[in-house]
Design a protein around this nucleic acid. Structure first.
Length: 469
DNA sequence: CTAGGGGTAATC
DNA sequence: GATTACCCCTAG
């Protein structure tokens, strides 16, 4: 069952924004060992934690902890520390210190405490341990921050630097690189293998003399093509990667699937799919991967180097499939798309193409609130103008409930406020306000919130209009 | 956000 | 009927 544990853990960790699961808590609860698989899982959890903290906008000393843990895990699997990792650590450390520079002077706040806590203690320990995170840049920052304690000009300069942006950029870069290095998840690999096996069998049935080779050749050639575009679109890919991996990727039906182990040099390329195995991805695996596991179960062997699942893996895969379906049922409420209609291959993507001008639309003397709402209007027109929209489904949001214009207008907008005469205090405050602020009704009201508590800016304007008449 | 036109209902 | 307070709308 340990394989199930790992796969389920991986499923949760790779899935973004699951508020009920903290990756590190999950791992500590499951007590994994130090096998290479487990280290990968731990790295995934650290990456997910960093990603979550970026999403939440929390960039603090906890992030430094995570980066230090990540370094240790990288050492355990004998990986080289990347430049992005070093830079991310350096700039996050600076950000954690600079955030305490809010007072104008270094001596007025917690800056000194932060300096001691982060640089004198934490980074000293790193230096002692010979950590690769201690870089020239880090030491340079350390010196500058020390000097800024005594040098108000430098303090001001650092205070005004946008360190946070740089830190976030490096953290994002680190996440992207590390997710790519981690490559496909176990779930996806199983699906890839079974898909390849199925493909090979299909070719075999057609009487091809060398089915596996042919299948591999086709996949490889497709891959080369895909690889090219992937490289070109790296920026986009990057954006989608960690930031939106819940979206998943296209189903494994696409031919961008490789055989792991047939060519090691393609490793990096393979990783383009990185977080492809999130929820939607699992959905695809379900139909394209696991369903085939049962079939593969019966037809045992394919000749050659084709990797196949052993009995244990197959049982595990079957159990996992059921488990995932159950978990998914609990976690994911059915999406609107699922509710509306089965996927029939129609592109439901949001159409952002500018819509043709609504030539029939006319304004009717400004009484829009009595008109049919915009949406309904367009739906109605849609029956006549479908052709011009190429039959695409245009997303429609519900017509928003109009806000009360006046903050003094209470619940029922049809009921007028009771008439309230202006008191001499109010009139006086208005006169004073106009003297001071001119006809800036908002400023006048804000300057006398108590006096004008029951007046709007428009009331002030109207009253002034009456006064000067 | 403000200015100004104008409608409605209460009050004088 | 005039005034006042409130409201709505449009234009800039």
């Amino acid at each position: 069952m340990e394989v199930i544990d790992k796969w389920v853990a991986e499923f949760f960790i790779r899935r973004q924004q699951n508020p009920r699961v903290s990756p590190t808590n999950l791992l500590s609860a499951m007590k994994f060992g130090d096998s290479p698989d487990c280290i990968k899982l731990k790295i995934s959890s650290v990456l997910r934690d960093i990603s979550n903290s970026l999403i939440k906008g929390t960039l603090d000393e906890g992030t430094l902890d995570l980066l230090e843990i990540l370094e240790k895990l990288m050492l355990q699997q004998h990986s080289v520390l990347t430049e992005s990792h070093k830079s991310a650590y350096c700039w996050t450390a600076v950000e954690c210190t600079v955030r305490f520079m809010w007072p104008l002077s270094a001596s007025d706040g917690f800056f000194n405490d932060a300096l001691k806590r982060i640089w004198t203690k934490r980074i000293w320990i790193l230096k002692e341990s010979g950590s690769g995170l201690v870089t020239y840049d880090l030491l340079k920052w350390e010196a500058d921050l020390e000097v800024s304690l005594e040098d108000p000009e430098l303090y001001q300069r650092i205070r005004e630097t946008n360190v946070r942006y740089t830190a976030i950029s490096f953290l994002n870069q680190l996440l992207k690189e590390q997710w790519e290095l981690l490559g496909s998840s176990a779930l996806e690999l199983v699906a890839q293998r079974t898909f390849l096996k199925r493909n090979a069998q299909n070719v075999d049935n057609r009487g091809d003399p060398n089915p596996v080779d042919e299948s591999m050749r086709r996949l490889k050639s497709d891959n080369i093509k895909e690889g090219g575009t992937s490289q070109e679109e790296e920026g986009n890919e990057n954006n989608r990667g960690n930031a939106s991996d819940v979206e998943g990727v296209g189903c494994l039906e696409s031919d961008n699937i490789k055989e792991r182990g047939t060519s090691e040099e393609e490793e990096g390329n393979e990783n383009n799919r990185e977080n492809a195995n999130d929820v939607e991805g699992v959905g695809c695996l379900e139909s394209d991967g696991f369903d085939k596991v049962d079939a593969a179960d019966e037809e045992e062997t394919i000749g050659g180097p084709e990797p196949s699942l052993d009995k244990g893996d197959k049982t595990a895969a079957r159990e996992l499939k059921e488990l995932l379906l159950e978990i998914q049922g609990h976690i994911e409420p059915p999406t609107r798309q699922e509710e509306q209609e089965p996927n029939n291959g129609i592109d439901h993507s949001v159409d952002v193409t500018p819509q043709p001008a609504m030539s029939n639309r006319t304004r009717t003397g400004g009484q829009d609130r009595n008109e049919t709402p915009d949406n309904a209007n367009e739906i109605e027109k849609g029956s006549n103008s479908q052709g011009t929209w190429s039959g695409r489904v245009r997303p429609r949001l519900p017509t928003p409930v109009p806000l009360n214009v006046s903050p003094l207008k209470k619940e029922n907008s049809n009921v007028r406020r009771p008439k309230k005469f202006w008191t001499p205090e109010e009139v006086e405050a208005l006169r004073e306000g106009v003297k001071e602020y001119g006809k800036s009704w908002k400023d006048i009201k804000n300057a006398n919130p108590a006096v004008f508590a029951e007046r709007t800016e428009v009331d002030l304007k109207d009253k002034w209009r009456n006064l000067v008449r």
